[in-house]
Design a binder for these strands. Sequence first.
DNA 1: ACTGGTGTACTATGTCGATAGAACACTAAG
DNA 2: CTTAGTGTTCTATCGACATAGTACACCAGT
Lengths: 131, 131
Amino acid sequence: MFIEIDPGSSRPIFEQVTDQIKFAIAAGTVRAEEMIPSVRDLSKQLAINPNTVARAYRQLQDEGILSLRRGMGLAVNEGAQSECQRQRKDFFQRKFQNFLDEAVRSRLSDRELQEILDPSRWDPNRVQPIG
Amino acid sequence: MFIEIDPGSSRPIFEQVTDQIKFAIAAGTVRAEEMIPSVRDLSKQLAINPNTVARAYRQLQDEGILSLRRGMGLAVNEGAQSECQRQRKDFFQRKFQNFLDEAVRSRLSDRELQEILDPSRWDPNRVQPIG
DNA sequence: ACTGGTGTACTATGTCGATAGAACACTAAG
DNA sequence: CTTAGTGTTCTATCGACATAGTACACCAGT
């Protein structure tokens, strides 16, 4: 499981963890019935506090994504992948809509918006999927 | 000057204020040599603490966007509009690039991304410019 | 001079995210 | 049984953000 954390982001770290674990499940990096990294392992890998990871794990249990195997760790639930795929799609849908809304509210010109969204200006090599 | 604050956002309120004032200057809602609302007026209008507004104003002075008229208030500087337009363009450019990067990193499929970005699915009436 | 309106500075309080460290109950493996 | 590794819970501390309230120096208008 490969996760990246941005400490400078205004988004809380524990939410970044829950997001990225959901995305990993949606992508099939971890499949149903498989175990996810332990609280202590992931906290060392990401150089963050174990409590922060534990908080993310607790929330994923509350959402029904993960289930506790006592003494073993946490496992991905059966229907989790399709659920995470739905949430991922919704996550980016909402994010892009917020982007458009804010652009309109700040009176960004159509010409400027078109330039920003122009696919021919994207850099497909700037970022690569993790894993 | 019309500004909207989202108290639930993880982005600090004082940064939301600086952003929106820059956007208002970029849009020409307030022009050079004009005064912006007083600390106390804007804090009442937005229902936030005067100290929060003061912090935003102080930062805008440090950036050279506003200038102090002692006893009067703060005025928009001469070259502020073009500067704010540059920053606004850059702000949304960066925001959209982050959106794309995060989508790629989470392995969102090209088909899903295309659906989200499809202009024919936008709702042009959902949001209106402020002012 | 006086009043009222500017921005600014300061202390105190509360919330929230994050860290640090300890302790607990549970279980697999030796 | 012992050991080591699970997740969980708790207290304490820190920093950033926001609020509340007060005080100050400055200036326009009357």
